[in-house]
Design a binder for these strands. Structure first.
Lengths: 239, 239
DNA sequence: TTATGTCATTTGTTATATCATATTTCAATA
DNA sequence: TATTGAAATATGATATAACAAATGACATAA
């Protein structure tokens, strides 16, 4: 009878009907989500300082949830805490960026391999749509937007793989690289390599050829990484 | 002149001499570390409830650092927060455990590949030592200790790869699987598969054969995973 | 005995207070 | 003008307080 506490007696039918109450996210969660979005969208430039107090003032919450959200991002490596204990967005150097890409290259091919048989036709259409949007953004020189769409494309594939842990790891990788990526977008310009590679990925998924899809993802990532690393290397030589 | 704030004027030589001040870790850091160790050593059984207040009382700190540390572990997936917002250690089911191993299998071979040329002779000796200790622990049926040593073995390799981000990801994987692993240790018993596989890994490193080392790690992980998954499957059928 | 309703306690969440350290300001001085 | 240094301010870390939701204990009714 003790176990009854964990599974209170409820008529299965009504339980199904009611479903679980959707507890509203805590303030910490909301602040965290805002920070996340901001980081991905390039609201802060890499290396920019953040303070818990300003954040709490800006968002109209107390210090606690603001601070908790920041700490959470710090823990994920999306924010740095300097030796003086101030918070700033990360600015990846070439080596650090390479490591992010090395890990993505290890994980995302597996994700697409698992995802390939699970994709529904309409989801594939969505991939095509996203890729065309990306092309459009690039042609309009809206590079930050194109990066945004690129991330959506890759994350949609990861979602389909139904590997929640892997997905969360890849999420934090994007978050970590976000500001640096955004800084680069103007140097990165006008490259349609991503577009062509994405087309290859889509084609492989349509043929339900998991191995080919994995190879295409790997190629997309390594070519993309090569460009960014080149830009970063140049940057580091410059200053 | 504005930029001066980011890089205070310090004679580079003296900077090198002094090094950064080693700011003592915060209370949050200390609590976090205690929790971490506890999780790895099986202080809490999987699914056990934790409360921030009890933790703060036990460790003689206020609620804030205790809570922050818990939230940090939640964020890493080492603790769960239930729908009722209570904290408990994770209890991975077979599928979740498999996902952890799938990710380890993707990352650790890369790590050992990068580490192989960087290993010093004495570090290889340390690997041998650890492996023999593990064998000893198993023969004494001290399974939890043997798991502890197994983790040291793998993490030492990851350290040598000098990929800090990858290392931190693998760290969280261990943390996540820790309680479940510890619960299993008695079913897991007397398997010397790990020992033999570790010997293969060491041999490959000694020969500086990175590819062979990667293959050996992959084999170690997949055979280890197979056993645990078998036990977990049985468990899930039982209850 | 078992189910149910009430009330005290515990817990997570958020806000606020306190303290030590960092940073900034700005006037006095060389 | 450039430097210095003390006072004012801002900030992160920690503690405590306040509140609502969840839990547990217990008395009462079936």
């Amino acid at each position: 009878m003790i176990a009854e506490y964990d599974t209170p007696k409820v008529d299965p039918a009504s339980k199904d009907l009611l479903g679980a109450v959707d507890r509203s996210p805590s303030l910490t969660d909301k602040v965290y989500e805002k920070l996340r979005q901001g980081l991905l969208r390039g609201v802060w430039s890499p290396g920019e300082k953040l303070t818990a107090r300003k954040l709490s003032r800006d968002l109209g919450v107390s210090l606690t949830p603001a601070r908790e959200a920041i700490m959470r991002l710090v823990n994920e490596g999306a924010l740095d805490v300097s030796e003086k204990r101030t918070f700033r967005t990360v600015d990846l150097n070439c080596e650090q960026y390479s490591e992010v890409m090395r890990i993505r290259s290890a994980l995302e091919p597996i994700a697409v391999e698992l995802a390939t048989p699970l994709f529904a036709e309409e989801e594939i259409k969505r991939l095509i749509e996203l890729n065309e949007q990306m092309k459009e953004m690039i042609s309009q020189e809206r590079f930050n937007d194109s990066l945004q769409i690129d991330s959506e494309f890759h994350l949609l594939i990861c979602d389909r793989a139904e590997q929640p842990l892997m997905r969360s790891i890849i999420d934090t990788l994007w978050l970590r690289a976000g500001p640096t990526r955004n800084r680069l977008s103007y140097s990165y310009r006008k490259r349609l390599i991503g577009y062509e590679n994405h087309k290859r990925i889509i084609a492989a998924i349509q043929l339900r050829d998991a191995a080919a899809a994995a190879a295409a993802v790997k190629r997309d990532l390594s070519e993309g990484a090569a460009i960014i690393v080149a830009v970063l290397t140049e940057d580091e030589r410059d200053n």
